[in-house]
Design a protein around this nucleic acid. Sequence first.
DNA 1: TATCAAGTGAGACTGGGTATCGTCAACAGT
DNA 2: ACTGTTGACGATACCCAGTCTCACTTGATA
Lengths: 146, 146
Amino acid sequence: MTDPSTIVTVLDRAGFRLTEPRRVVAGLIADRNGHFTAADLVDDARERRLDVGRATIFRALELFTELNAVERVDLPNGEHAYVECEPVHHHHVICSQCARTTEVEACGMPAVARDVGKATGFKIQSHRLELFGICPDCQATNSRRG
Amino acid sequence: MTDPSTIVTVLDRAGFRLTEPRRVVAGLIADRNGHFTAADLVDDARERRLDVGRATIFRALELFTELNAVERVDLPNGEHAYVECEPVHHHHVICSQCARTTEVEACGMPAVARDVGKATGFKIQSHRLELFGICPDCQATNSRRG
DNA sequence: TATCAAGTGAGACTGGGTATCGTCAACAGT
DNA sequence: ACTGTTGACGATACCCAGTCTCACTTGATA
Ligand SMILES: [Zn+2]
Ligand SMILES: [Zn+2]
Ligand SMILES: [Zn+2]
Ligand SMILES: [Zn+2]
């Protein structure tokens, strides 16, 4: 879907080794769209006969997350999933039907955070916002099917 | 901290049995402040020599969550924690130092959700917002300690 | 107080995630 | 290019949250 080299570039810039397993994981992620779990990547790898150790996949995801090349999202059902994304502050809109995600800036948020800080006396440090809904494609499909 | 009878009342109203283990779990929750995990309750119970099965604690949490007497929050580190709370739509401000939580209405959210829907074409169904920061008490303690 | 479905708990099981440790290979320095 | 250092790998054992099973207990109701 996207270009695996973007993650690889991020790795390189940050001074990490460009190992074969990391390239493979970056490739698997690039070929996905929407969110995915570590287990999904393990399956993908096995299907394609790319042998990457399970532990390595977890380690790669952890690293990519630290480098802001992917981000973890907590699905409503409690699953820990990941999405590839841009290294700037943003939020995700997640299709609860096909898992596709879109990034949004949700510019209204800083104001909300400020108000909440004022109302509660908390010094707000960070916030997490995830929006769930039906993406345009799925809406179209659904209405076509009746 | 709070009154265990509030959860018990909710249980009763919903037509569930008021069993001893459920009262115990409700009590453990009431005695906590801030968020807690299922494991925390298991430990609490053991310390106080209240014997409640582990499975029962999980089941009680699940039930209380369905009844909106507690709510699950996903901490930034990936842990699944719970907080006792009111059965109306709201969000949580969580102290990253002492785990205390406060509920807020965050009235700005519907507008944000609407904007995001308009910008992305998604039909927004639900959203999750969690704010993390330092509570007034901890701020005071921190500045006192220098 | 008798009835019986709802609820419980010991323990087995699953699955996500981590720790260990011997081996390997990316990269810097020559 | 050759080599040494060391970061990374991967097989495997392990840990822990959460679920399932099933024989047993208990709360509500008459
Ligand atoms: Zn993102
Ligand atoms: Zn969709
Ligand atoms: Zn709540
Ligand atoms: Zn605090």
